[in-house]
Computed example of a mutant assay.
Amino acid sequence: MADVGFIGLGAMGAPMAWNLDDAGFDLLVYNRSDDREDPFESAGIETGASPRDVAERVDVVCLIVSNGAAVEAVLEQDDGLLAGLDEGTTVVQMSTIGYDETMAAAEMVSEAGGTFVDAPVSGTVGPAREGTLVGLASGEESAVEDVWPMLEAMCEPVVNCGETGQGTNMKLFINLLLGDAMGAFAEALVFGRKNGLDLDTMQTVVDNGALDCPLFAGKGELIADGDYEPRFPVDYQFKDLSLALDRAGDVGAPLSQTAAARESFSAARAQGHGSEDMTAVIKHLAETADVSLAEE
C-alpha cells in the first residue's frame, strides 16, 4: 500500500507531489486531466483511476485543487474520494477555499468515516518547488501529528494553527494581507510614474527603508522587467480576497482596504489580465492614470 495519495497535479500540486517522492514516501497520484499524470508515470510512480481508487489504496490523501467547487467535486463525484474512505483514511485538504467550504468538507469526510486535516499552504510555485511553502495545519491534534512528516516534506515551516478551520482562517489572513499590500504597492508605483519618477529609483527607496520586504523587491523587479508570467494569478488573488471578505462579513470584521483591493483586482480581470501574475493589477491602474510603466 502506498504511503500517501496526492490529488491535484497543477502548478502547485505537481512540485509538492515530487517533494513527497523525493522525501521517500511511496506515492500514488491522481489528476482529473491525464496529461498531468504522465511525468509521474514516466518516473515509475503509480496513478489512480479515480479519487475513490486513491482513497482505497492509501492511508493519507493530500488534496490541492483550484477552489471549493473543485474540492466538493473530488469528494462527491461518481467514484469520488468519499466513496473510498474508511476509518483508517486521513484527508489532508490543502486547497485555498472558504471557511464554510472547509467545514463542510470536514463534515463530509467525518460522516464517511475518515479523518480530516485542514492544511492550506502559503506560497507560490517557487516555494512549492523548493519545499519552502508555509504549511498552515489545523485539526485534531493527533491527526495533525500523524501527517506532520508529510507536511514537512512539502513545507518549511509547518505551523499548527489550532482546531479545524483555523488553517483556512490563517490562509485567508495572509492572502488578504498579500492582496492589500500588492494593491497598495501598485498604486504607489503608478502615483510615482504620474509624477515623473522612474521605477528603479522608487524601488531603491523602498528597498532601503522600513518597507523593504521580499514581496516589494520581487514584484517590483518583475514589473520593471514587464514580466507578468503567472506565479500567483490575478484570478486567484481576487478569489482569495472575496473569500476573506465573505468570512469577514460572517464574523463582523471590517475590511475596507481589502474591499478596495479586491475591486482593483476585479478591474484587472475585466481587462483580460486574470491569468497573469498578480502584479498585473498595476496594468489597470496605469491605464486609468494614462502612464507608461516602461522607462523613457
Rank of each mutant, 00 (worst) to 15 (best):
P127I: 03
A128Y: 10
R129S: 12
G131Y: 00
T132G: 09
T132N: 07
L133Q: 04
V134W: 02
G135S: 02
G135M: 00
L136D: 00
A137I: 00
A137S: 07
G139A: 05
E140G: 02
E141D: 14
S142W: 01
S142P: 01
S142C: 05
V144E: 03
V144N: 01
E145A: 13
E145H: 04
E145Q: 13
D146Y: 08
P149A: 02
M150T: 01
L151E: 00
L151M: 12
A153W: 02
A153P: 04
A153F: 03
M154A: 09
C155F: 06
E156Y: 07
P157N: 05
V158F: 04
V158E: 05
G162T: 01
E163Q: 10
T164G: 05
T164M: 05
G165Y: 05
Q166N: 14
Q166R: 14
M170A: 15
M170T: 15
L172F: 08
N175D: 12
L177F: 09
L177R: 07
D180G: 15
A181G: 12
M182T: 08
G183F: 05
A184R: 11
F185W: 02
A188R: 03
A188E: 10
A188Y: 07
A188H: 10
L189S: 00
G192H: 11
K194P: 10
K194M: 13
K194R: 15
N195C: 11
N195I: 10
G196S: 12
D198S: 14
L199C: 11
D200K: 14
T201H: 13
T201L: 11
M202D: 05
M202I: 14
M202L: 11
M202G: 07
Q203W: 03
Q203Y: 07
V205H: 04
V206S: 00
V206E: 01
V206T: 01
D207L: 01
G209W: 09
G209F: 10
A210D: 14
A210W: 12
L211A: 15
D212W: 01
C213N: 15
C213E: 08
C213A: 15
P214R: 13
P214D: 12
L215F: 10
F216Y: 14
F216R: 04
K219V: 00
K219D: 02
G220R: 01
L222C: 12
L222N: 08
L222Q: 15
I223C: 05
D225N: 15
G226C: 11
D227V: 09
Y228W: 09
Y228D: 08
Y228F: 15
Y228M: 13
E229A: 12
P230M: 04
P230D: 01
R231P: 00
F232E: 04
F232I: 05
F232A: 08
P233E: 09
P233N: 10
P233C: 12
V234Y: 01
V234T: 11
D235H: 06
D235N: 13
Q237E: 15
Q237Y: 06
F238A: 13
K239Y: 00
A244N: 03
L245Q: 11
D246W: 06
R247D: 02
G249R: 09
G249Y: 08
D250Q: 14
V251S: 09
V251N: 09
A253S: 13
A253G: 03
S256K: 12
T258D: 00
T258F: 03
A261C: 08
R262G: 02
R262H: 06
R262V: 07
E263K: 04
E263I: 03
S264R: 15
F265S: 03
